[in-house]
């Protein structure tokens, strides 16, 4: 990986457990200062990918380079990586600070001041002498983030990082991610909170059954639609006929007072002119923007898989 801006580069990466592929044919580029989100249903391969990128697991196929270290066949984690597991565990009878000190001593990089500062940064009191066993889920999650940050990583992996956080914690966490990215840290987030990812990520990857369905650049993902409410069923039929003729995709909206459809177009004046000419009686028109959640649901279809 010769590009100094790249924190990680994956090419054709696959991971097989027996006959089942957890991750298949995955390409990914992650630059410093960038936040990339990973979205998918249960068993999509999110955690498996993080484990491969941190050196906790090896890939079955493809090539993985992280922080200039080839992790394709070796399981040595490169320096400069921070990771927050889904449910971080700590020594229950020690305080947050002592827990971090215990971990920090392994590398001997973070000083006591670094630990105190990191704890403050994630919203925990460094002077709190309570044992971690008395912490709420949200506090443990904050401590998990602190252990990943205290050694100032250049690449941060977050697996469901907002688990257990209260609304204020989520807002603070979002701000923290932005600060880290602004400081040049590359961040890789796997989360089920699509709205959260939408607000912090530069790019997101939709994954299902180990394959990337779509990669979206959220700076460009401004896909707008037009919602049109019409007077009656005859108008809906006329509208459908016009949309089919014009080659515009259309979806029914059943949560409104008037029969309403959503058109995959952003040109309101032109659309209205056409509809009026076609004799469609219009009650209301709205310009809407598709959310990440809608896109995710479209991609994953109507299967009853849970989002994780």
């Amino acid at each position: 990986m010769s590009d100094p801006a790249k924190a990680a580069q994956l090419r054709g990466v696959g991971k097989r457990y027996g006959s089942r592929w957890a991750v298949q044919d995955l390409d990914l580029d992650l630059n410093f200062g960038q936040v990339v989100g990973f979205i998918g249903p249960n068993g999509a391969g999110k955690t498996t990918l993080i484990r491969m990128m941190t050196g906790l697991s090896t890939a079955s196929t493809g090539k993985i380079e992280v922080l200039d270290t080839d992790l394709t066949r070796q399981t040595r984690s490169p320096d400069g990586i921070g990771m927050v597991a889904e449910h971080p565990r700590f020594v229950p009878y020690l305080s947050a600070r002592k827990n971090l000190r215990l971990l920090a001593r392994i590398r001997n990089v973070a000083s006591d001041e670094d630990i105190a500062e990191t704890l403050r940064r994630v919203g925990l009191d460094p002077q709190d002498r309570r044992a971690v066993r008395g912490y709420s889920l949200g506090m443990r999650q904050r401590l998990g983030v602190a252990q990943a940050l205290m050694e100032r990583p250049r690449l941060l992996f977050l697996d469901e990082p907002t688990n257990g956080l209260d609304p204020r914690g989520i807002v603070e966490f979002r701000e923290l991610i932005r600060q880290l990215a602004a400081a040049g840290v590359a961040v890789f987030v796997a989360s089920h909170l699509l709205t959260e990812l939408e607000q912090v990520c530069d790019r997101v990857l939709f994954v299902r059954r180990g394959r990337v369905l779509e990669e979206l650049d959220l700076h460009c993902f401004q896909e707008e639609t037009v919602r049109v409410s019409v007077t009656g069923p005859d108008d809906v039929a006329a509208l459908r006929e016009w949309a089919a003729h014009a080659g515009i995709a259309l979806t029914d909206q059943d949560d409104t007072r008037w029969p309403t459809v959503e058109l995959a177009t952003s040109d309101v004046p032109e659309t209205l002119a056409h509809l009026i000419r076609a004799g469609v009686r219009i009650e209301a028109v709205n310009r809407t923007q598709r959310s990440l959640e809608q896109r995710f649901l479209e991609l994953t279809g109507s299967e009853s898989e849970g989002v994780s």
Partner: peptide, 15 residues
């Protein structure tokens, strides 16, 4: 199984 390994192995010089 508890995910502790992910915190310690990442910091260890080697396995």
């Amino acid at each position: 199984t508890l995910g502790v390994a992910s915190m310690t192995v990442l910091r260890a010089p080697s396995r």
